[in-house]
Simulated scan of single mutants.
Amino acid sequence: MRLEGKRALVTGAGSGFGAGIARKFAAEGAHVICADINGDAAREIAAAITGTPVEADVASGASVDQMLDAAGPLDIVVNNAGITHLPMPMEEVGEEEFDRVFAVNCKSVYLIARKIVPAMKAQGAGAILNVASTAGLSPRPNLNWYNASKGWMITATKAMAVELAPHGIRVNALCPVAGETPLLSSFMGEDTPEIRAKFLSTIPLGRFSTPEDMGNAACYLCSDEASMITGVAMEVDGGRCV
């Protein structure tokens, strides 16, 4: 019960890593607000963990404000929602797709921070966790703008950590390798045994990240056990970045 009595918001909680983090947090005693652009998915996860569902588009300022008003006071915020573009040469990614990747992966962190940071400053405590990616540390070809968005998130995490530390607010990031999530086929271009084998050959431990892996790492960084840890980008990648 490492998060007993805590209120946590997890974006993108309807599936994949977000669902794994939400389940772990609930198992450790937190009340979890499960936010997702897919309202049905948010409600399904929230029902399973006795949490609170919220349908929200984290790329929209108005939607984020409504989400956070509905969430109420928060001790923990996990910026997990994210998207990618399909693998292709950088110059072939359309402007609209580029804008959407940066709106969901980057602008969302700003939109949420501007709303929750004043409240966390007032209470003198808080934990913010940004789900980045190994793509921000060791980029793969043909995912250029997705790589860049995750590199932005890692730098934002460190900048936030330095600025907010005097207020008792810790900010960290997780950098998973690709996992069994709805985005996996988008990362690989297509999901075939051959492409999976090639992808897995770059991960020393020989498997993808799982929602459970992410939940365990997120729980640690957001718990009081990590009270001296801020500004880190923890790799949960089976050795991918070694």
Results as ranks from 00 to 15, higher is better:
Met153Val: 15
Ala127Phe: 06
Cys175Lys: 01
Glu91Ala: 13
Gly179Trp: 00
Val162Pro: 04
Gly72Pro: 02
Pro182Thr: 02
Ala173Leu: 05
Glu163Trp: 00
Ala122Asn: 09
Asn79Gly: 07
Asn147Ser: 14
Glu97Val: 12
Ile83Trp: 04
Leu183Met: 05
Gly136Tyr: 09
Ser108Arg: 07
Met120Cys: 08
Asp99Trp: 05
Tyr146Pro: 14
Ala159Gln: 12
Ile83Ala: 08
Ser108Phe: 08
Val109Thr: 07
Ile128Leu: 11
Pro87Asp: 07
Gly124Pro: 12
Gly82Val: 05
Pro182His: 09
Phe102Thr: 01
Gly189Cys: 08
Thr134Arg: 10
Val77Leu: 08
Ser108Glu: 10
Tyr110Lys: 06
His85Met: 09
Trp145Glu: 09
Ser133Cys: 02
Asn79Ser: 10
Leu129Pro: 11
Asn142Gly: 08
Thr181Ile: 02
His167Pro: 01
Pro182Gly: 03
Gly136Gln: 10
Leu164Asp: 04
Pro176Gly: 01
Ile112Arg: 07
Glu190Trp: 00
Arg170Phe: 05
Leu143Phe: 13
Asn147Lys: 11
Asn79Glu: 11
Leu184Tyr: 10
Lys115Gly: 02
Ala148Val: 14
Ala173Arg: 04
Asp75Asn: 14
Ala159Val: 08
Ser138Met: 14
Gly168Pro: 09
Ser186Gly: 08
Met188Tyr: 12
Gln123Tyr: 09
Ser108Ala: 15
Glu97Phe: 03
Ile116Trp: 10
Asn80Met: 05
Ala161Trp: 10
Leu111Asp: 12
Ala113Asp: 15
Leu174His: 00
Arg100Asn: 05
Ser186Gln: 10
Ile76Ser: 07
Thr157Phe: 09
Gly151Thr: 07
Ile76Gly: 07
Pro166Tyr: 01
Lys121Phe: 06
Ala122Leu: 06
Asn80Thr: 04
Ile128Phe: 04
Glu190Met: 06
Asn105His: 04
Ser185Asp: 09
Asp99Glu: 15
Val109Glu: 08
Gly94Gln: 13
Ile83Gln: 04
Thr157Lys: 11
Glu190Ser: 15
Leu86Phe: 14
Gly72Thr: 00
Ala161Leu: 11
Glu96Trp: 04
Ile154Asn: 10
Leu184Gly: 08
Pro141Ser: 08
Glu95Gly: 03
Lys158Leu: 06
Val77Met: 03
Thr157Cys: 10
Gly94Phe: 00
Asn79Phe: 08
Trp152Gly: 01
Met188Arg: 12
Thr157Gln: 11
Glu97Trp: 02
Leu164Ser: 01
Lys158Tyr: 03
Pro141Lys: 05
Pro182Ile: 02
Leu74Arg: 08
Val78Ser: 05
Ala113Trp: 13
Thr84Asn: 13
Gly94Ser: 15
Leu174Met: 04
Met153Phe: 02
Ser186Ile: 00
Phe98Trp: 15
Leu137Tyr: 09
Tyr110Val: 12
Gly124Met: 13
Lys150Leu: 11
